[in-house]
Design a protein around this nucleic acid. Sequence first.
DNA 1: CGCTAAACTTAGAATGTTTGTG
DNA 2: CACAAACATTCTAAGTTTAGCG
Length: 726
Amino acid sequence: MDTSSDSDDDKPLLARRVPVKKEMEVHAAVKPMDDDSDDDKPLVDRKPFKTYVRKDSLKKNALMADTASPKRAAQAQASAPPEKKLKVSPSFVGKSRVKEELSDDDDDEDDVPIAQRKPSISSIKKTVLVQQKTKASSSSGCSANAAKKFLEKAKAQKLLKKKKVVKVTITKTKKEPGSGEGQKWQTLEHNGVIFPPPYESHGVKMLYDGKPVDLTNEQEEVATMFAVMKDSDYATKPKFLKNFWEDWKAILGKGHVIKKFELCDFTPIYDWAQAEKERKKSMSTEEKKRAKEEKLKAEDKYMWALVDGVKEKVGNFRVEPPGLFRGRGDHPKMGKLKTRIMPEEIVINIGKDAPIPECPIPGCRWKEIRHDNTVTWLAFWNDPINNKEFKYVFLAPSSNLKGQSDMQKYDKARVLKDYIADIRKTYTMDFSSSDPTRKQIAVATYLIDRLALRAGNEKDEDEADTVGCCSLKVEHVTLIAPNSLQFDFLGKDSIRYFNTVEVEEKVYKAIGQFKKGKAEGKDLFDKLDTTKLNLHLKAIMPGLTAKVFRTYNASITLDKLLQDTSGDTTIEKIADYQRANKEVAILCNHQRSISKGHGAQMERLEGKMTEMEALLEELEVDLDRAKKGKPPLKDSDGKVKKNQNPEALEKKIAATRQKVEKMRLDMRIKDDLKTVALGTSKINYMDPRITVAWCKLHEVPIEKIFNKSLLAKFAWAMEVEPDFRF
DNA sequence: CGCTAAACTTAGAATGTTTGTG
DNA sequence: CACAAACATTCTAAGTTTAGCG
């Protein structure tokens, strides 16, 4: 595989992450790793197989049956034995309790209002269960000695391995904690959402044509939103300015003195805001702490929900404050006013028997109260920028509900593993299909599989113009003879995907054919959209959709790369992990912008480096002279250096050399990673069980890899065996 | 079906906090 | 101890997929 040349593959792989503006040569393809080692041989050589859906693989997958659709679930279960079991370690059941311990260490006041309420019947059962299990599994706590415990446990696990594996098997169905069809919960209590404070006027007057102007509160509020963005990139974008001006003008009203945007001077407001920032920064740590505590106390009741009697963290309980829309990339709506959301616009979802949260703004009421236990949201409102869309309030990633569905996501990807060989064979055959739709599906699937492209839905006129696989346009792919393709397009978040890959002859030809006779701007895959593609994928494997390939390839790549890590010390092991993580991030094209201090930081390191090298040279001279018995030279201040024996000098030289080497390496890593975002794949793509297992096997404390949030989010994955393979 | 509405996952930037270093 | 760099958290935009309807 082309991913194998470990020593120098960093460079070519990295070369792809090109900052959007710069052009750069691309040297190599990034390909997902997998264990199917014959995969890069011409796929044609493989024996074809008969049908899409193989009976033997169908039955593997009761668990794939799709969560949301009762109908499909029923079908899936009809064709597949429902007694498919899912292994769950005992502590899984007690997870929510463990999770709380994990995330609660900063405020142990569990019994805030919400928790005081009587638990529902089902929750009593659950709580008992939870408490029983807690003792057995309390090892994944996040306390000071957690790392030690983790290691001890890992060691024990390693030794005993097969022995005490008390696996509880539960029947896996689509139903979540609750029981009915598509039910997500039985009881749900929460306190609604918290609103941003009302606008407080600062009374600072902006200038119009050089003269101060009076503004109403509302006018001033919007002017301030704009003023404070002076230093951001948006302030230079014409579209942003235009959209802001349009919305603000409307608020100013017809007869207002302010007529022309060009005559507006917001600097007084900007200066005030800067001063305000400064003032806040200069508050004593005491004051800051106090303010923070107060805020926390006021918000505490909104932070938690009771789901089936279990206290769970709420994700985004804060209603988004008004502001100017910050769309990414070339977004047609950037700069538009995102208006303040009022309680009257908010729909609350809550258990039938739960008290309805009091509306925090006096004299207001909620838009609607629902009791829908087939969904997981606690509240939503219409997005003021795009009224057809919604903003939801969900539980935090550490919640049971989210954890369950996260695990299902990875389990689904693991099922794909059983199908992937056949899927690859099939699409390879279909590269030469005479049915044009089939051919396009084959090529699209190939790209999604090998390049980890996203599905690529159609986008509206009023969104940034970005694409994914199905929505690729003719100009996004260039043929490079003899058989390479160059991709250059803006994907999600307007992040550039720029990559040149060698592909199979047939793919190369097919792309050429798809492009032929089409003008720029035309769809490369004209017979295809994500719905059709996913429909096709579902026919191959229950629950299979385009995004599963990304999860699969990310996880399998991590799994593979972690197989042969060589680090001895913990530090080296962590570096090994990060290297693997980096590969995955590159595969998924996860980028970040170069931090603003990066250039300067590198220069500073460069300077230090030169310094050290100079020192090294000086030491060599000293050594030389010392060996010959000559007295040492004067140092830079003109003083005579103290005499040193050759042994000491040699030691010092060796140490310095080592330091220089380490620095060189650090610098390279820093530079390599300047545009690579490792976090996204860790949070969303790499099965945490791979990481946990690897940590156990290599006796690396899991805390070195997962921060507090991730530990809480991945509580469900903590008990895997050290020999877990994705 | 093909469309739109709805619900949920994934994403990078911005902001806040901790840690390392001189 | 001051400052910056690293790291963690928050924020909300931008995707994917599913549901439901005519």
